[in-house]
């Protein structure tokens, strides 16, 4: 449980700045704000659907900044050719949600 988060601090800063640029309300981004950003990756919609499933940890249909970082991390890895996992590996779970 003490393992470091795979999202590195410099990546987290980048993802946080994207998060903030999307106009979060109450620290959360709704699905309709996140969707176009993920679609921009040009990844198949079924892959993006899985990315969402894995990142929306509390299943509330919104992403907070840590959940958003998980989504962005998975998208960037997928663009590098790594498969999106079927379930979230423990090192990818944000420390705040373990």
């Amino acid at each position: 449980a003490d393992a470091p988060w795979v999202v590195k601090p410099e990546e987290k800063m980048k993802f946080d700045s994207i998060f903030d640029s999307l106009g979060p309300v109450g620290g959360m981004l709704s699905g309709d704000k996140v969707k176009p950003v993920l679609l921009n990756s040009k990844l198949p919609v079924d892959i993006l659907g899985r990315v969402w499933e894995l990142s929306d940890l509390d299943r509330d249909g919104m992403l907070d900044r840590d959940e958003f970082s998980v989504a962005m991390y998975l998208v960037y890895r997928a663009l590098e050719g790594e498969p999106v996992p079927m379930s979230l590996p423990p090192p990818l779970v944000p420390p705040s949600k373990r």
Partner: peptide, 13 residues
Amino acid sequence: QYPAGGSSTNPFL
């Protein structure tokens, strides 16, 4: 894989 029916919280479904 996804729950059948019901309202989804996933904007990609």
